[in-house]
Amino acid sequence: MLQSAKIIGAGLATIGLAGAGVGIGTVFAALVNSTARNPSIKAQLFSYTILGFALTEAIGLFALMMAFLLLYS
């Protein structure tokens, strides 16, 4: 009973990944948009994009950490 509840909880924790997916999509969509508007600052924008991508991805990984905590503790 407790085991199945743990597995259901870990499955529910992955719902949070929807937000991370939307966030990463927004970051790269903004990069494509702004590169199309002003291609000359592409290199500078790319470093900001990598930073934004990493910050957004970390939020998704917190969901992963919760899933691990539920499964293996």
Binding site: L55, E57, A58, L61, F62, L64, M65, F68
Partner: peptide, 12 residues
């Protein structure tokens, strides 16, 4: 958050 980001990425 600084350390958690690195570690969680590697574990993941």
């Amino acid at each position: 958050s600084l350390g958690l980001r690195l570690t969680a990425n590697m574990i993941g």
